[in-house]
Amino acid sequence: MKVSLEVNGAARAVDVDPWRRLLDVLREDLRLTGTKEGCGEGECGACTVLLDGAPVNACLVAAGQCHGRKVTTVEGLAGHADGGAVLHEVQAALLACGGAQCGICTPGIAVCASWIVDAEPIGADAGARARVRELLAGNICRCTGYQLIVDAVVEAAQARRAGEGEP
């Protein structure tokens, strides 16, 4: 069937079996390979994308369900200015804090964390780290022990608030 969707702000159309996974549509049909497959069972979060603004596992979305919807992948996080790429706050923080090691879980974490800094009030309070841990629990990383990723997301949330003019 023909599926029209918006991916990272651009209108795209594919002709696919409606049971095909969004993950495969992104990776194979649209050649957006930043979205990774770690398990195919909705467990590891490496394939996290935003579907109509909400973080979902792309391995558990049928292509047919994407018609008319908006998808954001890791390729859509960075912005552009002066002809060059500008990393999203969470990407910059993951880089600066050492939150990426082997990197295979990193795109999913970046996408999920981008939603967190947009949608959730992550402050500098004592509960902030626990909140980040609960919200990112659907993204498994085997390299970092999570510590430096939590550091990065808390830092990105602070950068976001600073960017919005908060003290």
């Binding site: 957006l32 390979t33 930043g34 979205t35 990774k36 992948t73 890791v74 390729e75 996080l77 960075a78 790429a85 990393l87 990407q91 993951l94 880089l95 600066a96 050492g98 990426a100 990197g103 295979i104 990193t106 795109p107 970046a110």
Partner: peptide
Amino acid sequence: VPRVDGVAKVTGAAHY
């Protein structure tokens, strides 16, 4: 210093 492969990994550009 940040990882030399860090930008490729956080942007999804690294090719596995």
